[in-house]
Amino acid sequence: MITAVRKPMEEIIACVSPYDRILLAGCNECVSVCSVGGRKEVSLLSSALQMHFLKQGKTLEIQEVTLERQCDPEYVEELVNSVDSADAVLSMACGCGVQTVAARFREKPVFPAVNTAFMGASERQGVWSERCQGCGDCVLGITGGICPIARCSKRLMNGPCGGSTKGKCEIDTDIDCAWQLIWDRLKALGLENRIEEIMEAKDWRTSRDGGPRKIVREDLAS
């Protein structure tokens, strides 16, 4: 899942202050699940913005719409009617959603209300951790299901480094050392030997280093 956090109100306020009518668009997918951009947050942000501007002597009109998924053009199409009566769009979706909306409504300014953070998993209610950096060439099969790229602070491919202490990372002792986790897991699987094997330098061309990526499925694409 893509995780995000709401931008500071100050920044959001600065974006919308030139306008009188805002379309506030939420998304019922990832950002709902991480409680940052679903119907509830849309409603709270709308309320907060209106009150803020009211204090400044300005009545801000806000239309609240939450789409099933902002990163699909078909769903974004549902904004067609509301967008006309808005001066600007404020999106609470992740960066993918914001761009899909911006691409569809070229004539309207579109602002993000959240900072997209990372691809992560829920640890428990209200806690999410980074798990994947989309390198395009997954190594989880050989690292015991724990990603050294996403979870080692140094992205070491042959760890641990000398800073691993009592299972914690030297960058921040709240962070588990990914290589300690990998070792523990391999040991539990009876695959300790694997830690001895040197992983060769990773081919980063599948990652961002090869420029923006695209997936085309010939069997599905039309």
């Binding site: 019922n28 699940v33 409680s35 428990r124 209610q125």
Partner: peptide
């Protein structure tokens, strides 16, 4: 409307 986010399940 449900996003199957599991929050209700957890709380």
């Amino acid at each position: 409307k449900c996003a199957a986010c599991l929050i209700c399940v957890r709380v």
